[in-house]
Write a protein that binds this DNA or RNA. Structure first.
Lengths: 188, 188
DNA sequence: AGAAACATGTAATCGGTTACATGATTAT
DNA sequence: ATAATCATGTAACCGATTACATGTTTCT
């Protein structure tokens, strides 16, 4: 989803600044599926303003740059409504971690165990974080999305835990044979 | 994972052409987590050759352009080994579908049901496809990755099936009230 | 007859990231 | 003291996608 549409969507819920949009994506459950950097958000809001889809009021602040709070115009609301009806492009799950595991056989046993442990711990942390946010419900859509995130991450974590022996076993036990046998056993 | 490393990795398993690398990512389980277009693969292989990490032999063909079959050089193998030991960047799950569902309340009931049905059917198709490929095992790493793909997609699908009522219910039943009531009920 | 698979490559474009610039306030 | 939060914005860069160019063979 392009950054412009993401901004439009988050502004359809409430008036917000660019900074707040970024934080929402960083901390909230939606951030699991949608990302955007400041360098993308600020220019997007500028263009959206030029196109008459959003407008902003400036709140003067002490010390900091003035805060620009954006709100949707009727045209912006309509554009977003149409964007939601557009064909939905397929999910993209990119994982360098699984690319590395594809070559599990070639990895050192200790390193493999380490990255598996690390990944499982990361998943646990993420689940805990989503659940704590999840407590304060914000409506059916967001709650549903948060639940989906938890379901997916939990499944990934459980799979790792229950099947890691498949890649941690075989060649690795062989590597652990006494040194005198190494040359022969690893020969082929 | 950058395209160069992906090429290196797939060439570490077997000698392959650019076209074959692309097909492998398109059809195989690894494609669920790693993508690359021709426009990225061909230049990557050219640069890898210039850098001495791969080399190729040309197989003359009838009618088609000559097929270039690439193989890793020792330097390429070493570079890949090091790449696997590098810090692994986090997974990125991008989903326009879940972005749309975030705004479930604002969607028309029929449209919402339609995209949910469609998505579930897609998941089923994908699972079936991975399972059929999965039959011919190619080693623990690939089997493990394929299994992880199935686990994740199955969890996503199950979640949709079991929880869709949460977003299909409430405001939607209201919309289905007799026409005479619409203006009042939808007023707020 | 027409689509899909086979096969490589280039060029234009693009959406987005990273880094930089600036600087006060508040929490650790 | 030091890091993090708040707050916006620009510019350089980059990896990658899309579209184009070319042309045969095989499947439907």
């Amino acid at each position: 989803m392009d950054v412009r549409t993401v901004c439009l969507g988050l502004l359809s819920e409430a008036d917000r600044s660019g900074y707040e949009i970024k934080k929402l994506l960083e901390d909230g459950p939606l951030g699991n599926f949608v990302e955007a950097s400041f360098g993308a958000i600020y220019p997007a809001l500028t263009r959206l303003t030029e196109d008459g889809l959003v407008e902003f009021r400036t709140e003067v602040q002490d010390g900091r740059p003035d805060k620009k709070t954006y709100s949707l115009t009727p045209a912006g609301r309509e554009t977003f409504r149409k964007a939601l009806a557009e064909p939905i492009s397929p999910d993209r799950f990119r994982s360098d971690f699984l690319f590395v595991l594809w070559f599990a056989e070639t990895l050192e046993a200790d390193y493999l165990s380490e990255i598996l442990d690390h990944r499982i711990a990361e998943f646990e942390a993420k689940i805990a974080r989503i659940k704590s946010e999840h407590d304060r419900p914000e409506g059916p859509g967001p709650a549903f999305v948060a639940g989906q995130a938890i379901a997916i991450i939990t499944a990934a974590k459980t799979y790792l835990e229950e099947n890691r022996h498949l890649i941690e076993a075989d060649s690795r036990t062989r590597i652990k044979t006494p040194r005198s046998f190494d040359a022969t056993v690893l020969g082929d």
